[in-house]
Amino acid sequence: MPGSIHLDNLTKRYGALTAVDGLSLDVAIGETYALLGPNGAGKTTIVEILEGLRTADSGTVEVLGLNPISDRTRLQRRIGVMLQEGGVYQGAKAREVLALFTAYYPGARKADELLELVGLTEQATTLHRRLSGGEKQRLSLAMALVHSPELVFLDEPTAGMDPVARRATWEIIERLQADGSTILLTTHFMDEAERLADRVGIVNHGKLVAEGSPTELIHARGDVSFVSYPNLPVQELTEQIGIDVREVRTGFYVVTTDAPTPVLVAQVTAWLAGHDAMITELRVGAGGLEEVFLALTEENNR
């Protein structure tokens, strides 16, 4: 099946810093793919290379079967871009910005229709610099959708939004999904990735450290975690069972393993019984994407 995005062995350096380090990635048509990663992991660099705003040092970059640099104009007509911040004339009104953008694309939607789509009808004649952070984000989203593009890049689309605006934005994105658009988004919010993404790629130090559907990623980890009294001498338990046990937050302990067994769970609870430590929670497997994310990015940073 022809893909929407194909990256093979992509590398990008800024001086001594390797921002993207031999990364390969494929996104299918109609799929929503979320790039997750800590700040500086290389997410924005990857997205900007796909958008044709940066050149790769090496590797293959194909977007909708086109080269973002040499096929720039043809590609730009088919993709929609939402930058992480900025990108709008400070002194222009919301409707003026969208009206200008409609001149760039054949068959563009009407500015008023776009304002309504992102809920900015009342702010149509407000200067960009007077919009709130969330309103700026929504205008930026509308700018990405002027020409109903088949592939949309959203770089942290809900950063700086209040919960109501976030939900409204998610609904707009879900409508795009229903219309069959392919979406590549970056985010810091695990709930956003879990809700919107078909597949998630976790990026750290410019490398893809894990990839899969949110459910796959959550179930792939077999960590045993429990909540009990703080400051238990778990070093003792580590030595006893030969598996790393750490108190990652006060009173929250993680036994790091990919293959949990009933015996392991029994050993842990027996040790706790020996210390007269009551458990208030015991879980096998990650509880959510956030735990997976923290585990993967922490392992890499250690």
């Binding site: 730009q76 993709i79 871009v81 930058l83 911040e85 900025g86 990108g87 709008v88 004339y89 760039y104």
Partner: peptide, 18 residues
């Protein structure tokens, strides 16, 4: 200068505007 600072020029680079 300020369009460059506020990344307007960059954003327009991601449109078909030559």
């Amino acid at each position: 200068g300020f369009e460059r600072k506020y990344m307007v020029l960059k954003r327009l680079g991601a449109t078909p505007l030559p």
